[in-house]
Amino acid sequence: MLETRDLSVGFKINSGGKKAVLMAVNKVNLNIRKGDALGLVGESGSGKSTVGRTILHLNKSTGGSVIFDGQDITSLNRTDEKILRRRAQMVFQDPHSALNPRMTILRSVAEPLILHTKLRGPELREKVGTLLEIVGLQKQFLYRYPHELSGGQKQRVCIARAIALNPELLVLDEPTSALDVSVQAQILEFLKSIQKELDLTYLFISHNLAVIRYVCNRVAVMYLGQIVEQGETEDVFNNPKHPYTKALLEAVPLPEPGQPRRGKPLVGDIPSPLDLPRGCFFNTRCEKAMAGICDSRSVPNYLVENNRAVRCFLYNKDLQLEQA
């Protein structure tokens, strides 16, 4: 249903008087089937949010293309863009700043309906009431302002606004990371149930691996603008192939006593996207980096078993032989 082909996004920036291009997203290929929930996971600066924003035309892409339902939507005229906005919606990370502080909940949720439908007056109010009901809020919230609501309630309002036009695709950008865990659990449960009910396709962006594992059936791991591993969620979590995926999974502290000491945490910092390492972007922090290979040649994607792609020389059979 949604496909990105070599999608790249660069931002022009000024660093110390020098003009430079920051490659936030570097030739990303994603493939989301209808009804999928694809998790896009990565640390800050990995470009995961930029991918989501670019698909929805909130950023301009600088290379590659986005295919939505068989149609290239990389550049659209205004009418087509309006149709896209109906069919694909976004939920943002911080529900507090995603709502205009001077608008009541009624006006916020009604906005997409006003823009795209002819509903007005009492019918509009009724529709908004129904939407609030779907997301589990009572109608007394209609005339409240965002600052009177808790974080979880605000995120429900944002979701109500996003599903108002019956979209097919929802891009969820860290929808629960600003929320407390008990509220996060409610929202995640709810997102899972409406995905079935409303027949939605999700692109779920998060830095939280546990959340991704809970919601998504497929997962793509990003590092410095590239997808380093992509596959079925359970496969990736049970048997991570890329050294970065492995390290990421091991770095998450588990909420249970007596956890065994797992692998050594990754050393060093994420390199600056303005000064990308040569070869594999991960080679500066990788335990298994092979001198002369990983630090000089750029890595292709290797297809290993069951629809699984890994961007790592460890999975190049010829190289392995060479090394041996």
């Binding site: 924003r53 906005r85 943002f92 995603a98 205009n100 823009l115 795209h116 944002c158 606004r161 036009l165």
Partner: peptide, 8 residues
């Protein structure tokens, strides 16, 4: 951004 994403 949210307003833009709903097509305002």
């Amino acid at each position: 951004d949210a307003a833009r994403s709903i097509g305002a």
